[in-house]
Amino acid sequence: MSNALFISVHDFRSLRKASVHFIAAEMAKRGVTRFFSIGLSRLSQHRGDTRSSLRDRANRVEVVAGGVECYLWKTAWHPFAMRRQMLAPLESALFSAYRRMIPRVPRQWIREAEIVFVESGMAAVFVADIRQMNPKARIVYLASDDLDVVGCAATIKRDFIRNFDMIDTVRLPSRYLLPGMPHGATSILVPHGIDRSIAEPRYPSPYNGRRGCVSVGSMLFDTAFFRVASGAFPNIDFHIIGAGKAAAGLQAPNIIIHPEMAFADTLPYLQHAAFGVAPYLDVNTPIYLIDTSLKLRQFGLFGIPAVCPNFALGDTPGRFGYVPGDSESITSAIQRALDNRQEITVDVMPWSGVVDRILSPREFADVKL
C-alpha cells in the first residue's frame, strides 16, 4: 500500500481524460491516492477552463469512485505568463505569493505522501515546496508536454531547471521529450498505456445508419480540415466532440458538433466510426505527439483508421497522413482510410504496466533511454 499525491492543472473528476487520470486511477488500486488540482480562478474560467463545471465543488475534499480524494483549488486569481521582460519581477512575485497560499488540506497531503506525482506545466513550480515540506517523499515528474511548447511562464521554466535535481524520477512518454530536460540522468522512457477493456463491450451505434467519423478534443484543433472534408464527402457525417470554441465557426449539413462529454460516452462513437480524425494544426507542433496522442492510440484500439497530419504518423500502421491546409492531400488521406482493408491493432501495455515501470524502473530494461 502507498500514499500517493498528484498535482496537476487537470482535475481527476473532469470529463476529459489525460494520461494523468489513468495513472492516478491505477495508483488508487494500490493505496491512498489524492489529487490536488491547481490554477482555477476567475481568469482561467474566462479563458475557458475545462474545470469550470466543477467550480462549485472547489476548495473542499471530495472522494470519488475508486476512492480518489480530490481537491480543486479555486482562487480569485492565479499567476500567469507575462511575456514582457520588464514584467518578469512581477511574474516571479505572483508565483511566489501563489505558492505561499497553498491551502491547509493539500499542505497536509504533501506532508503525508510517500510519492508525489508532479505533472508538467504549472505544477512544476511546486517542486521545491514539496521537497521542503516532505524531505522523504519520492517526487516523480510526469513530462506530459515540453514546457516551451505549451507556453509556460518563464518563472515556471526557471524554477523547473533550478529545482530539477530535487526530482527523483522523470517519466517521459516519448524520447522526443528528453531535449526539454536539463539532463537525462533520472529520466525513464515509459510510453502511454491503454485500457483494453473499454473496447470489449458492444455499444449501440450513435450514427443513425449513416457513415460517420469522429474527432475528440480541442488540442490544436484545425477547423480548415473539416471545411474541406465535409464538402468532399457529403455522405459521411463528421462528429466533433468537445472542441469547444475552436469549432464554433463550422457549419455544414454533415458536421455535427457535440459539447464535451464523459469519456465513456465517447466510446460508441469510436467503436462505430468509419475512421477517426486527429485534426492537429501545423504550428510548430511537437514531434512527440507521434507517441503521446491518446486519441490516436484509442482509434487503433478500436481498430479504426486514423486520419492525421503527416507529422503525427510515425511508423504506426493504420494512420493516414495529410498536409494541413492542402485540400487534395486531405481528400486523399480520407479516401485511403475508407479503402483500408488491413486489420488495425495496437501493441500497447496496460496502464498497470506503466505504473509498474514508474514505481520500479530498475526492474524493467525497456525504460532505459
Score class of each variant (00 low, 15 high):
L5S: 02
F6C: 14
V9Y: 02
V9M: 13
K17E: 10
K17R: 15
S19V: 04
V20N: 11
A25Y: 01
M27Q: 12
A28V: 05
R34E: 10
S37C: 09
S41W: 02
R42W: 13
G48R: 03
D49E: 03
D49S: 03
T50A: 15
R57N: 10
N59G: 13
V61I: 14
V61F: 01
E69C: 09
C70K: 00
C70V: 12
Y71C: 12
L72T: 08
T75A: 15
A76D: 15
R83K: 14
R83C: 11
R84D: 10
M86G: 07
P89I: 06
E91V: 08
A93C: 09
A93K: 07
L94C: 13
P103D: 09
Q108P: 00
W109C: 13
W109D: 11
I110R: 05
R111P: 00
E112C: 08
V116N: 08
V116L: 13
G121P: 01
F126E: 11
D129S: 10
Q132N: 04
Q132K: 06
M133R: 12
P135D: 08
P135F: 04
K136P: 00
R138H: 07
I139P: 04
D145P: 01
T155I: 05
K157Q: 14
I161T: 05
F164P: 01
V170H: 05
P179L: 12
G180T: 05
G180Q: 11
G184W: 01
T186H: 14
T186N: 15
I188L: 10
V190E: 05
G193R: 04
G193M: 07
I194Q: 06
I194S: 07
I194H: 07
R196N: 08
R196E: 14
S197I: 07
S197E: 13
E200L: 15
S205G: 04
G209W: 01
G212S: 09
S218K: 02
M219S: 12
D222A: 09
N235C: 07
N235F: 06
N235A: 14
G242E: 06
G242S: 12
G244T: 01
N254L: 12
F263I: 04
F263D: 09
A264N: 03
T266G: 08
L267I: 03
F275V: 03
G276S: 15
A278T: 10
P279Y: 03
D282K: 02
T285D: 05
P286Y: 03
I290M: 05
T292L: 12
T292F: 05
L296Q: 04
R297A: 14
G300Y: 06
G300R: 11
F302C: 11
F302Q: 05
F302Y: 06
I304D: 04
A306H: 00
V307R: 04
N310W: 01
N310I: 07
L313C: 13
G314Y: 04
P317W: 02
Y322A: 12
S327K: 11
E328C: 09
I334C: 14
I334L: 15
A337S: 10
A337T: 00
D339W: 00
Q342R: 10
E343F: 00
T345P: 00
V346R: 13
D347L: 06
V348R: 07
M349P: 00
W351D: 11
G353A: 13
V354G: 08
V355A: 12
D356R: 01
F364W: 09
F364V: 02
V367L: 08
V367N: 06
L369V: 10
